Simulated scan of single mutants.
Amino acid sequence: MKDNKLKQMSLDDLWDLHERIGAILSDKIESEKKKLEQQLDQLARRVAELSPPGPERRPYPKVEAKYRNPDNPSETWSGRGKTPRWLAKLIAAGRKLDEFRIQ
């Protein structure tokens, strides 16, 4: 449609045209979305078929706690991994790690 024809249309006709265009756009967008989802599903299946299964992790034994927070006895640490904040704060304040060892 030419710009002149649009300018000559009444408000009701323009609104009707707007609603029809919105409905058509909505249908086309939904159709494209379904096509893209189908393509993604196909790609995901291909990737799953081509990729080897990952190695299973071996079970690790439970590690007992070695250190306990004196201010909050429910906070413990096994000595593995990153030092917990409560322990790092106490050590920075001059305390020794052995002071928190569980007997």
Rank of each mutant, 00 (worst) to 15 (best):
L90R: 12
E49I: 03
M1C: 03
P84Y: 02
P55D: 08
E56Q: 09
P52R: 09
R68H: 08
W15Q: 14
R20Q: 14
Q39K: 08
A88T: 05
H18Q: 12
I21M: 12
P84T: 03
L97K: 08
P70K: 07
L36Q: 15
D98H: 07
K5G: 05
D41N: 11
E64L: 14
D12T: 08
D71W: 01
S10T: 11
G22F: 08
Q103C: 05
I91T: 04
W86K: 02
K5Q: 15
Q8F: 07
A93K: 12
R46E: 14
S51P: 02
D71T: 05
K28C: 10
N69Q: 06
R68W: 04
L25S: 11
A65S: 14
R46Q: 15
R57N: 11
L50Y: 02
D12W: 04
K89G: 00
R45E: 15
G81W: 06
N72L: 08
K89C: 00
P61V: 04
R95P: 02
E99H: 06
L87A: 01
E64H: 08
L40F: 06
K66M: 11
L17P: 00
T83F: 01
S74K: 10
L36G: 04
Q8K: 14
E64S: 12
K66F: 03
P70D: 08
R45S: 11
N69T: 04
Y60W: 14
N4C: 12
A23P: 00
K34V: 05
D98Q: 05
Q38F: 11
N69P: 02
A65P: 08
L50H: 04
P52S: 12
K34F: 06
K96M: 03
E64V: 10
S51T: 15
L50A: 09
F100W: 04
G79Y: 03
K34Q: 14
Y67R: 02
M1E: 10
K34N: 09
L36M: 09
A93N: 12
A44R: 15
Q8P: 01
L50D: 06
H18P: 00
Q39S: 06
K62A: 09
K35L: 09
E32M: 14
N4E: 15
S31T: 10
K2Q: 13
M9S: 03
V63L: 13
A48R: 14
Q8W: 07
K89W: 01
L11M: 13
L50T: 09
A48F: 10
W77F: 02
P73K: 07
L50S: 05
T83P: 00
E32T: 09
L43C: 05
